[in-house]
Design a protein around this nucleic acid. Structure first.
Length: 874
RNA sequence: GCGGACGUGGCGAAACUGGUAGACGCAAGAGACUUAAAAUCUCUCGGGCCUUGCCCGUGCGGGUUCGAUCCCCGCCGUCCGCACCA
């Protein structure tokens, strides 16, 4: 007997067990079918999953299940981005070991994810904190080192003097450490770098090939890489104005065309020429100190006034030995970019203009806009950076900007001083090398040994992995590895003398830069990857995750894949062929009268007409309903996936996550919305029951044209075709709408068919029911199995091939076209599908409504858009 | 400041990128069933009017077109990214 109501609590675990027992979602590397790799960004094991995870993993699961049904060998794995600071913070606060904390969280979250009914191959699960994973990362670090892709150099870092650690930029708030509150210092530290800049050109160029990435992400990466084409120019310095040992100043410019508009030179406060000039100039030295001090507070830089200090040094214009330019030290010049020195052309650069207006250096426009009179064109407060023709520029006058750039480059390239050309074309990038050293415990150890005699010595590969010691304490600030009694003391692999291990660990972005490759063969022990396997699976066909990783994670992964290619661990450049960035889950916020945040679960609502009021469930006090914001613990506007799955079932949660909003946009979590999804689950159950009954009773036979049976079949196949298209374009909200529509249609048709005994009706319902359940299956997999069984279908819905669309059913013999008169809809006309223009015109013009709307005016034109619309122009 | 995206009913949204604006869902209202509630089912649901039908309506103002949510120009608003990168 079929129960009245569908009981998700019983059915869901039952079907998961069936899938599990049959090992349904295990993926074999030797499966000959075409591959499809779908991956969602793996989670950080923070403790419990949140609704954002539910949304992300549901989307990936729909794709995985759909492609499986389509006959692909689908790889859909899951793992844990398991290293990172929260584990150490937990260790400090709760006296629990990071490893224990992490693995407990993993166990909890694995259970939660499994309760969602995801079609994941759990046998491939990996955790980045597992030595079985990070040993390969250490191996690749050494391979990169051999290949020249690793650098060790000093770099400025944000140093927290209380916590004794380096902070990432986003961990510095108002110049203070986010945890300690201490004033952050800029320190020069020796750090390990991965040479991502070696690939800057390629990382930029290949963005154009990523046509299944959001344009927004490509643009963000393009800006981040910041490619620019320009010219290096060596300016001679007047010896009598210049400290001993300095003879020239090399600058970088993207506007060599504006050289005749130059008014000054400027160097960064930490430029060698600035230091040299400051040696005998205490005032300048003080100015430089001041710049460096301001430089530490990130916020201040943005608002800071442009300040400069004339060094007294004079540079010679490259095209006129009698023209000299003052050399300033300026606070807005960055040592890290270009050569740390510029020439200033105030008329065509706003920063330079602000600078000269402050110091009274004047300006000369050298580019005249097309609509301006060159004689009258002046610049006062706003620099002109648009197009135009050269003026006031001697041999460049009259040329376009592009031609002038070319001319200057050409002349300076061919001119030499001290045996080197004065000018040199140079492509510059904003992108910097990737500093991966972190003074932390819970990360992948950098496999290096420091020996006083031999210097920096790599750990021999046969001694990998360098395993984190477990007996560590977190009661004092600083890196536990550094103060561990024995761990760092080792013998030098080269000379055998006393040496020290590197105590820095790797940035956790390294861990996530290759996990997608490891999933292709995660149990391999000798190598990070198997070349044949990794090359067959990669690239990931569809990657799904949050927009917050648009730059760092995705750029690092693109770099890492290239580095793996160079060291023989993979054979391709781009790891992710398709990328989709999903929106956040947002929710209303609630506050009580004291202004404290209130959990949604603690609010009871009353509606009077259009107004909605909230009250606290226990105290009954009124609760103010606030703005809709990203779910966050601090604002307490969170909903726990466990509770939702517990009360409604996983399918309801999945369905609601997919309905309503387009997947790239934020979705608002509402109690009403979930209830609606839950109602639909029950409605599907009743509908399937009725279809089962109706299709069991009557006999078989062919459906006649125009019969109810044909209408049923058309409805089913139309929905099938639409859902196929929408899943493939990840437009899940439209899939949901299509399925609702089919449900509405089938319900309607069941009513119409009640008294009919036309032949073929039972078979038509059987087919439609089957298709209906198959459309549901990727989204609500548990319900689909239960329904599949109720329909008496063999096997499992999750293991059944996707149905074929019967295209012939989608073609209508008679089509109804809207009829417009002068662009306004006045009537409909039904004509044969293949009716010609003349027939349609005649039919349209004979319509009463058309005649009336024409108001007796003559027909000027009839526009017939085939299969679309007819417009009569009076 | 620079770059990008987006503005459609009470709400989330559709509209095959130039062809019937508002599919589908949520909320709301009316009714049926019920002793009652829940559940379910039926109907209404952009605004207005002289309601068999007509007029207005996709942030605002123009333009192109037989026809514009869609293309072009100018505003207004919201959100996001970058921010002295020479």
């Amino acid at each position: 007997m079929r129960p009245e109501r569908y009981n998700a609590k019983e059915a869901e675990p039952k079907w998961r067990k069936v899938w599990n027992d049959r090992d349904l979602f295990r993926t074999r590397n030797d499966d000959p079918r075409p591959k499809y790799y779908v991956l969602e960004m793996f989670p950080y094991p923070s403790g419990r999953i949140h609704m954002g995870h539910v949304r992300n993993y549901t989307m990936g699961d729909v794709v995985a299940r759909y492609m499986r049904a389509k006959g692909f060998n689908v790889l859909h794995p899951m793992g844990w981005d398991a290293f990172g600071m929260p584990a150490e913070n937990a260790a400090m606060q709760n006296k629990v070991h990071p490893k224990e904390w992490t693995y407990q969280n993993i166990a909890t979250m694995r259970g939660q994810l499994q309760s969602m009914g995801l079609a994941i191959d759990w046998s491939r699960e990996i955790a980045t904190c597992d030595p079985a994973y990070y040993r390969h990362q250490q191996r690749m670090f050494l391979d990169f080192l051999e290949a020249g892709l690793v650098d060790r150099k000093t770099a400025k870092v944000n140093w927290d003097p209380v916590d004794h650690t380096v902070l990432a930029n986003e961990q510095v708030i108002d110049g203070r450490g986010w945890r300690s509150g201490a004033l952050v210092e800029q320190r020069e530290l020796t750090q390990w770098f991965l040479k991502i800049t070696d690939f800057a050109e390629d990382l930029n160029a290949k963005l154009n090939t990523l046509d299944r990435w959001p344009e927004k992400v490509r643009l963000m990466q393009r800006n981040w890489i910041g490619r620019s084409e320009g010219l290096l120019v060596r300016f001679a310095l007047r010896p009598e104005t210049t400290p001993a040992g300095e003879t020239e100043l090399e600058i970088y410019t993207t506007r060599p065309d504006t050289l005749f508009g130059a008014k000054f030179m400027a160097v960064a406060p930490d430029h060698p020429l600035a230091s040299a000039a400051a040696e005998n100039n205490p005032e300048l030295a003080a100015f430089i100190e001041e710049c460096k001090r301001i430089g530490t507070a990130q916020e201040a830089i943005e608002k800071a006034e442009k300040l400069g200090f004339d060094t007294g040094i004079r540079a010679v214009h490259p095209f006129d030995p009698n023209w000299t330019l003052p050399v300033y030290v300026a606070n807005f010049i960055l040592m890290e970019y270009g050569t740390g020195a510029i020439f200033g052309c105030p008329a065509h650069d706003q920063r330079d203009l602000d600078f000269v207006n402050k110091y009274g250096l004047g300006n000369t426009p050298v580019v005249c806009p097309p609509d301006q009179d060159p004689q009258a064109f002046v610049i006062t407060d706003t620099a002109y950076d648009g197009d135009g023709r050269m003026i006031n520029s001697r041999f460049l006058d009259g040329k376009t900007i592009q031609d002038a750039k070319e001319e200057v480059a050409h002349r300076l390239e061919s001119e030499t001083r001290d045996g080197r050309p004065v000018g040199e074309r140079k492509v510059n990038f904003r992108l910097r090398d990737w500093g991966i050293s972190r003074q932390r415990y819970w990360g992948c150890p950098i496999p290096i040994i420091h020996c006083d005699a031999c210097g920096v010595v790599p750990v021999p590969k046969d001694q990998l992995p360098v395993v984190l010691p477990e007996d560590v304490t977190f009661d004092v600030p600083g890196n536990p590895l550094d103060r561990h009694a024995t761990w760092k003391h080792v013998d030098c692999p080269t000379c055998g003398g006393k040496a020290r291990r590197e105590t820095d660990t790797m940035d956790t972005f390294v861990d996530s830069s290759w996990y997608f490759a490891r999933f292709t063969d995660p149990t391999l022990t000798d190598e990070p990857t198997d070349r044949a396997t990794v090359d067959r699976w990669l690239p990931v066909d569809q990657y799904i995750g949050g927009i917050e990783h648009a730059i760092l994670h995705l750029l690092y992964s693109r770099f890492f894949t290239r580095a793996m290619k160079e060291t023989g661990h993979a054979g391709l450049d781009e790891p992710f062929a398709g990328l989709f960035t999903q929106g956040m889950v947002v929710h209303e916020t609630y506050r009580d009268q004291s202004g404290a945040w209130v959990l949604p679960a603690d609010v009871r609502f009353e509606t009077e007409g259009a107004t909605r009021k909230g009250f606290h469930v226990t105290t009954g006090a009124p609760v103010e309903i606030g703005s809709i914001e990203k779910m966050s613990k601090s604002k307490k506007n969170t909903v726990d996936p466990d509770e939702i799955i517990g009360s409604y079932g996983a399918d309801t949660a999945r369905w609601f996550m997919l309905s309503d909003s387009p997947p790239e946009r934020d979705v608002i979590w509402t109690e009403e919305g979930v209830q609606g999804a839950g109602r639909f689950v029950q409605r599907v159950w009743r509908l399937v029951g009725e279809i089962a009954d109706r299709s069991a009773s009557a006999g078989n036979g062919a459906t006649a044209d125009g019969s109810i049976g044909t209408v049923i079949r058309k409805a089913a196949h139309k929905a099938l075709a639409a859902v196929e298209e929408d899943v493939e374009r990840l437009r899940f909200n439209r899939c949901v709408a299509q399925i609702y529509e089919l449900a509405n249609n089938l319900q309607d048709l069941l009513g119409q068919a009640k008294t009919s005994d036309e032949p073929g009706l039972a078979e038509a319902f059987r087919e439609a029911g089957r298709i209906f359940v198959q459309l549901l299956a990727p989204m609500m997999p548990h319900l689909a199995e239960e329904a599949w069984q109720a329909l008496g279908q063999p096997g499992l819905a999750a293991d059944t091939a996707w149905p074929e669309v019967a295209r012939s059913l989608l073609v209508e013999n008679a089509i109804t076209l809207p009829v417009q008169v002068n662009g306004k809809k006045r009537a409909d006309v039904t004509v044969a599908r293949d009716a010609d223009q003349a027939a349609i015109e005649a039919a349209v013009l004979s319509l009463d409504a058309v005649q009336k709307a024409m108001e007796g005016k003559p027909v000027r034109k009839v526009i017939v858009v085939p299969q679309r619309i007819v417009n009569v122009v009076a």
